[in-house]
Design a protein around this nucleic acid. Structure first.
Lengths: 256, 256
DNA sequence: CGTTAATTTGATCATCTTCAACATGAGTGG
DNA sequence: CCACTCATGTTGAAGATGATCAAATTAACG
């Protein structure tokens, strides 16, 4: 067995929703004060102290929806011949676990570093979805968004070359950091090159090479797991090489 | 513009839920008679007479959840440089449209042939999700399942070779036909080779070649868009070539 | 500091794409 | 009904992308 260590409950809670800086990005956004109070009373916390801890496995009964407070998580699906595909990385403020509502979880969730999670237990999901229409809609919206994100990933894996995939990945991480108020230019990767490669459907050697190349071309600078985006425009131009260069040129002309 | 034709409302309904042979696979399964009645009263129908009709486009406001009565639908996402990725094929009894609940649809839905749809309008989704807890849970479950299916597709695109992808695709179609009571051995593809290839992240020439090869090897027989699975065991063996051959061998030995 | 894991880099190889030519087939108008 | 046309599908050959294998380098950690 690779890892039998598990996430443990945290009591008392490290930080309530009321004082959480991520609350605006989280499930209870848009709730009125009394609804928010009700929501808050049902949230629990759970933490892992080390990287590699498993939160749930494929087939496990659905117990809760999770939000990341600090740290990060990867989810992966695996086949009977032992191959694995990482299907998501989750950072602070992001929600996951929605795949478990049908017949238990269809993926495994693993900590990439020491991680603190908030969870809304399944019974509470059901109860609150019934009692608070705004929250029910928010859950629908969130699941819908997850579906859309997966579709974007299908596009990325199905139609894009390796260099475009990596550029898209870096920009996605950057955007998500900006979304929670950070600059997004300096990215600390919490996952290995192997994980990045797996997520993007390529070999880890390819990730290494592409990072080196982007680095040589002054688009990014790489220092271990820290990536700095030196030239965001150039990086974005990698994503859609067929049209973006023109757009950039035109832009440069019109503003020049 | 490729196609401006649209799906049109069908009134009176061709067939009510009460008499629909697919009702057991559909959203209202598990509802009690009065709930079923309430559900049924809110369902509308919509039809396209030709292939290529567009039901909704990326960015369109979410108007309804759809179920296929007859015919088939593909959904696709596209990028600003005109590339497209098909993200799903839907057959009779299957539900789709759940990607639209966040900020409108994130994909485009196109008829692959003359198609009759049932739809549950957005207002009804909200109302019924509130009034019928069983239906709310069913919608949650269905969205969760969609998420799981997308994860399986990510695995397929990220970790599998072209021949494994195609074999998986054929088996998936077969399984889905069996699910609605058909034998599943004779598959009428409603989509072009190009669409199959796009869905599986490869070139249409590759699909042609792989079908020819499987045909030459007597695993399937191909006649235009009709594919007959001649040797299901062999086809399944293609999906996980690393381990399945052994399992098959052992099986043959033990039953021999 | 030694030991192991992670990463980088180089060289070769397989898979699959692309380009091109040809075949098939459905639909159309003569 | 048949020739024609356009869309779709098949097959071959060449080339590109990225995987795999192997070795060297760096980083992480007790």
């Amino acid at each position: 067995m690779a890892n039998v260590s598990k996430f443990s409950p945290v009591r008392p809670m490290t930080l309530s929703c009321k004082d959480c800086s991520l609350a605006e990005l989280c499930l209870p956004r848009g709730l009125n004060p009394s609804e928010f109070e009700q929501f808050m009373s049902m949230v629990r916390q759970r933490a892992s102290r080390i990287s590699g801890d498993i939160l749930y496995r494929t087939g496990d009964t659905f117990r809760a929806i999770y939000a990341i407070k600090t740290g990060s998580i990867k989810t992966l699906v695996s086949s009977s011949d032992g191959e694995e595909q990482i299907t998501g990385f989750f950072m602070p403020g992001e929600l996951f676990g929605f795949d478990g509502l049908d017949y238990g979880h269809s993926c495994t969730a693993v900590a990439l570093e020491p991680t603190l999670l908030c969870e809304l237990p399944v019974a509470s999901v059901d109860e609150l979805a019934h009692q608070i229409p705004g929250l029910r809609r928010e859950i629908f919206r969130m699941m819908s968004r997850k579906l859309s994100e997966k579709q974007s990933m299908l596009f990325l894996l199905g139609r894009r070359k390796a260099d475009q995939r990596l550029a898209t990945f870096l920009l996605s991480l950057s955007t998500r950091m900006q979304y929670r108020g950070l600059s997004g230019n300096e990215i600390r990767l919490s996952m290995s090159r192997h994980d990045v490669a797996n997520y993007l459907g390529m070999a880890s050697e390819t990730v290494s090479r592409l990072l080196s190349r982007l680095s040589k071309e002054k688009v990014i600078s790489v220092n271990g797991r820290t990536v700095v985006i030196e030239n965001p425009v150039a990086l974005r131009a990698r994503v859609e090489p067929c049209i973006t260069p023109n757009a950039v040129t035109l832009d440069a002309v019109s503003t020049g």
